[in-house]
């Protein structure tokens, strides 16, 4: 059996998630035993239009992007959304909070008229996605887990419970005990509470759990005297395009 061909593509993103892959070191050799990488501009010059597995970094923000991702979907047997921008829209989604023409002028000033832009969408909001690797940047142990599932042809379920679960198992002191707001209670686990283990808060980069408790969360905000718009702003840093899922 020939090895599956893997191609990396980037849309609106910083390409930092692909860098995580390039930084793998020795494990990369194990991966290369199992797949042929045919397109990966961050590490090689060769390119190929023939591939089985497409790993997509970045969100879809232009008409050109939309056409391009549809073409990739048509060619690939498996599409993996890779990183926050691809899985949930990520920080590019912040522009969805504003009027498009206004925000374009704010950013590009006189050059705005040459810029063509659409509201930010995650990859699954445009084409069918088979696997999701969340996080900003992607969490290396999870990349490996998902790649194994892809090669074995079995599904991967992103944990659909709060980051708090993994955070407690790591016995971190709760950020709320320290008087600091953290998005752990509404954010999907799977990163082993990576940020909190290292003294940072959860920014919600993995996307919200599918069934967040709206009333309960509002109670918590009220108790900690955290204004709603303040937490919404925090959530929107990564999660603004979630609204497009809710409209469906």
């Amino acid at each position: 059996m020939s090895k599956p061909k893997v191609a990396f593509f980037d849309f609106a993103c910083c390409e930092g998630c692909q860098l995580q892959m390039a930084n793998f070191g020795e494990v990369l050799l194990d991966i290369l035993n199992l797949v042929d990488i045919v397109t990966f501009r961050e590490v090689m010059s060769e390119k190929s239009e023939i591939y089985d597995i497409a790993i997509i970094e970045g969100s879809i923000t232009t008409a050109h992007d939309t056409e391009r991702i549809k073409n990739i979907r048509a060619k690939a047997k498996v599409v993996i959304a890779y990183g926050s921008c691809a899985t949930i829209g990520g920080i590019n989604g912040m522009k969805n909070k504003f009027d498009l023409e206004e925000i374009k002028k704010y950013v590009y000033r006189d050059g705005a008229k040459q810029i063509e832009t659409l509201p930010t969408r995650a990859v699954h909001q445009v084409v069918k996605v088979d696997y999701f690797i969340n996080c900003c940047p992607v969490y290396p142990p999870e990349i490996l887990k998902v790649l194994k599932c892809v090669i074995a042809g079995i599904p991967y379920a992103v944990p659909d419970y709060a980051v708090c679960v993994e955070c407690k198992l790591n016995e971190n002191v709760c950020m709320y005990d320290k008087g600091i707001t953290c998005l752990g209670p509404v954010t999907k686990a799977g990163c082993n509470s990576w940020c909190i283990n290292n003294g940072n808060i959860c920014y919600g980069c993995r996307g919200m759990v599918t069934n967040p408790a709206k009333n309960g969360q509002l109670d918590i905000l009220a108790r900690h005297k955290i204004p709603l718009d303040w937490i919404t702003n925090k959530l929107d840093m990564y999660n603004k395009p979630r609204e497009l899922d809710e409209q469906k």
Binding site: K148, A162, K168, G184, A213, G216, D219
Partner: peptide, 27 residues
């Protein structure tokens, strides 16, 4: 109405013993 299902209550409980079993395949 109040619970947010963060799982803290059971994860810190001295008598909760539920576990999940997972297989990990090497490359």
């Amino acid at each position: 109405k109040r619970c947010v299902a963060c799982g803290n209550c059971t994860n810190v409980c001295p008598s909760c013993y539920c576990f999940d079993i997972l297989d990990n395949m090497n490359f």
